[in-house]
Design a protein around this nucleic acid. Structure first.
Lengths: 207, 207, 207, 207
DNA sequence: TATGAATGAGCCTTCATTCAT
DNA sequence: CATGAATGAAGGCTCATTCAT
């Protein structure tokens, strides 16, 4: 698992190019020559351009996936009637872990979320969302949330997206954590507000 | 501003290709030949591929920008001490106009938001946001909102992003409107919740 | 079906290269630049190197296949008990047609038989043989020919191969025809000889 | 002439690759790494890819050439007036030796005949033929054989070619020998038949 | 002897663009 | 207005070979 000097240079150059222009618009030739080598040298390490991207991003991607799986497992372990209520707590408790992870892998997260068009990761985020939404819908029936299905989907997607953006754009761990807490407050507060409004409306209907 | 038959066909084909594969992955040759013409014909109308994209999207883009400018103007016209309080009302009142506009220009909005990589529009949304945020920050100082600046920025950005996504993914005007109302409820409810929590905390501090 | 001047030049150059070095060893760049053009020009006519080879050879290949199908049909029309006896006559009668055809398409035949490695035609000859052998075996049971199966297979294959070589290496139609008659004489004479020897041996056994 | 263990492994791997894909389509890097080494090791033994092929095939090639030279010498030793008549006997007598040799060097023969494109051996067979034909023509004048020179050339070439194919495709020495006898019977039988036909025709002319 | 890093020329293909007609 | 031919740069990739260690 040693990473040679050459490889480090190529990785660094690749990061620069991918982050600046995205995967597809980055020329492998330029990446490698900016690292001080020729194309032939590159193919001694990887057998395709995509493999290079994969190598840069693999660890981070699987870290995120692992985190989500663990989170899902934790939730599944909750008693059925408490699932919905406690889901939020679980999220709140685990979120900092994710943020820390993302913060420590900022470049890679950026690659994953913003520069992966044309690679196998191009739907990484969307894929995660979908799975997550399926889980949440399945776990709780979601009957209590008086949201348009579309609104619900968009909000969940964007909650995650915000998480990623915060980790990407914040400059200190501190800032990101506070930011995420704010965001979380807004979202959960908003949900609570919605439930209350709804209850009020239903009561009025009955009277 | 007459649009010849030829041009209409080219536009239609271009839309298909750009929407399916994005700007860069679409071959001009294929666009034009699918329209029933040859490349030479195309260059009689436009002098580059990017100009074609521009033509498809221009009207919608400037429509959105105009909408935002008008919104800003409306807000600027509010008395300074009411700005923050009423901003939300202004937004609520004007939002349906924007949604309608986007809904009526769905294809172009989609091009703008999802298929513009490689064109001058690739940062269209981000650019708008930035301007908008500058305005809001400047207009109200934002002192009262106990949010991290980053959280604030991200939330505003995402609010708009959600709007665009709703207009894109909803199937009827009705659905989109309801979706947007839900989203708006969550966001403003979340804000209110945040303010209350904050007040509570400050009171506790004083005691 | 008009063939432009450009295409003629490219075809001519391609023939030269393919015939001299085979398909794979011929560089498309060189082919095209020897024709006086650039690679881009080429791809206006064909969409791959293989398509170029195909274009050069297609007519000849399908001509040969058609000939063989017709020959098979003619033989199939013979009464079952005469098949084997008359097969030779049918071959003798039709062979000049094939030789004429090959002679008129010598370059293409050469491409097909000697320069097609790496194209879909690389097993053209072998494929024809196989079909042909299947037909002959099926048609007549082949019981009368006291040959090793391997010998039989090799002889038939080589009979055809000789035919192709004759058409390729002969310089006049006359020469090729006489050559083929000679070859035919040797092969059929050899077969007759073999049958007689066999009959003698069987008779001796019985006595 | 010691062959190190390393070299044996490389040879074995090279055989596999060359026989499966031909000389040119085989990557030296793959050959060597399949043998468990790296390219550097290879270049300690040979200074080029072609030299490797040469090493694999050299002995067999020179064995065949030697065989042919000896055969020629044997024939040359015959009294001039018997040359043509006895040539066939000499061939018949010596042919099994060749077949045995080829059978014992099947892989190498296969390399030589089927996988040598791109090496100095790519015309090995054709070259041998040419020499051989020159000898036969010179030795006997060939006046008596009423064959087109082209037919004669092709038949001889093909006779040898059949020999090689038989040795390659047969599975037992037995089968190959019988196959060759059959082939020989057909060829010589064919020749005899031709001579008789010719004699008849000449007699008829005289009458 | 063997490694492993690196080269450089070559391959086929794609594409936006130009231009004479 | 439209065609069709052609360009030239760029793209990802393969490979035999070299060389310091």
């Amino acid at each position: 698992m040693e990473i040679s000097d050459t490889l480090m240079k190529i990785h660094a150059s690749a990061k620069n190019h991918f982050m600046a222009n995205g995967y597809e618009r980055s020329s492998l030739r330029k990446i490698v020559s900016d690292a001080g080598f020729t194309l032939g040298a590159f193919y001694g390490y990887y057998s395709s351009k995509e493999e290079l991207f994969h190598a840069l991003v693999e660890e981070t991607a699987s870290g995120i996936l692992t985190f989500l799986k663990e989170t899902a497992a934790t939730m599944n372990a909750l008693p059925d009637d408490l699932k919905l209520q406690q889901m939020n707590d679980v999220f709140s408790a685990r979120m900092p872990l994710l943020v820390d992870f993302l913060f420590q892998h900022r470049d890679e997260t950026y690659l994953l979320l913003r520069c992966s068009d044309g690679t196998r990761y191009e739907n990484f985020l969307a894929g995660m969302m979908e799975e997550d939404l399926r889980f949440m819908a399945q776990a709780a029936g979601m009957k209590e949330l008086p949201l348009q299905p579309l609104a619900q989907k968009l909000l969940v997607e964007n909650y995650f997206s915000l998480l990623g953006q915060a980790a990407l754009e914040g400059t200190t761990r501190e800032e990101i954590m506070k930011t995420m807490q704010d965001i979380q407050s807004v979202f959960t507060g908003g949900m609570v507000n919605l439930l209350q409004r709804n209850n009020r409306m239903e009561r009025e209907k009955q009277e």
